[in-house]
Design a binder for these strands. Structure first.
Lengths: 200, 200
DNA sequence: ACCTGAACACCGTTCAAGT
DNA sequence: ACCTGAACACCGTTCAAGT
């Protein structure tokens, strides 16, 4: 995309290049257990170069997770169809969510694993909370329209939705959603069960 | 517990001793990213000794996951109170489930992470399915008693329950259930929302 | 200002020996 | 039959130099 793309870095933006390579490795190896040395190798720099841009392997992983949350946010935005009834909107958002996780399993896992090196990174848990916000908005709309009930606190219902979707995403990623056992569209079926509980 | 517990292994059952040490490290470090060498060290054997009992670090991890599933099964059994109405039983089982995950975060994560080295270990996914079975039984009972509806296929409802509980467990583990935002008992509140969807 | 090469400590794994 | 010690390849990280 830039003027001379034969040797894009070495004095271009190695920062981005490293992130891209790392995303590739994440996808290929199915986990964040790749080595920094190979990231460097694949990017065409010495194994010490990344340390000029990331203090740590953990720092790289954190950056990847942030990219992931942005991408998830974009996917959810893209799936929005405000002209539909709220139930359908909620379903559609949930399907888009699970589809994202299914398409980027290692990235999705990384986003949520305090396991990695993610510790209590404020940025991360805040972005995770943003996902939560999307659900909240739809639930509020549903209540205003009288489609959803107010039996439970709004926050509880939102949490129920998020947990459901998060759980389905992870079960899907880990190959625990066997279609023979659970029907050909387990996700929408399971979600419908939940949405019924929200009905007025 | 055996006759001479001063030096329990060296010629006792090193197999079990290694597993126990590994479980400790798992709990302490909060992830399966400990090293085999330290497991050996803490167990009082050379770093090569474990390879006499486990072909691999992955093999050890798989064993830990199996232990975990057994423990989870025990926890669920212990929480059974057949005299209560089904909704309460379902709630109680779910609470026990989340409590287990909360008490053994790293172990619970390991149990479900294809991430580790768990690959498609048949034993594991089968034990995971067993958890699923418990839910199925309760749902069936609920239907027989006319307390739960049959709007959706049984399998879908069971999946919805499992995903909900799995999702809550992981959100709890990863510290995303902030009590200020979500009430003092987010889990039971979220679950109630789901159970309402099952009502006849 | 950014990158390289050598170096350090450490880990997973193997294997020839030891008891 | 089970364990040890040395050894190998490899990784994360650092740092003195290079441009």
């Amino acid at each position: 995309m830039s003027k001379d793309s034969c040797r894009p870095y070495h004095h271009g933006n190695l920062f981005q290049a490293l992130i891209n390579t790392a995303l590739e490795l994440l996808q290929e190896q199915g986990s964040w257990q790749f080595n920094l040395r190979e990231v460097a190798r694949r990017t065409g720099v010495s194994h010490a170069a990344p340390y000029r841009h990331f203090s740590d392997k953990t720092a790289l992983l954190t950056e990847l997770a942030l990219v992931g949350f942005d991408a998830l946010g974009d996917a959810l935005s893209a799936s929005r169809q405000p002209e539909n009834p709220v139930q359908q909107q909620l379903l559609a958002a949930a399907m888009a969510y699970v589809a994202f996780a299914d398409a980027n399993p290692a990235l999705y896992r990384l986003m949520f694993s305090a396991d990695a090196g993610n510790r209590e990174d404020v940025h991360l848990s805040q972005r995770a909370q943003n996902t939560f916000t999307v659900v909240l908005a739809l639930l509020e709309q549903g209540r205003r329209e009288g489609v959803f009930n107010g039996k439970r606190p709004l926050q509880s219902q939102a949490l129920a939705c998020w947990a459901e979707v998060h759980g389905l995403a992870l079960l899907a990623i880990d190959g625990l959603l066997l279609p023979e056992k659970v029907g050909n569209d387990p996700v929408s079926a399971a979600l419908s069960t939940l949405v019924e509980g929200l009905g007025a």
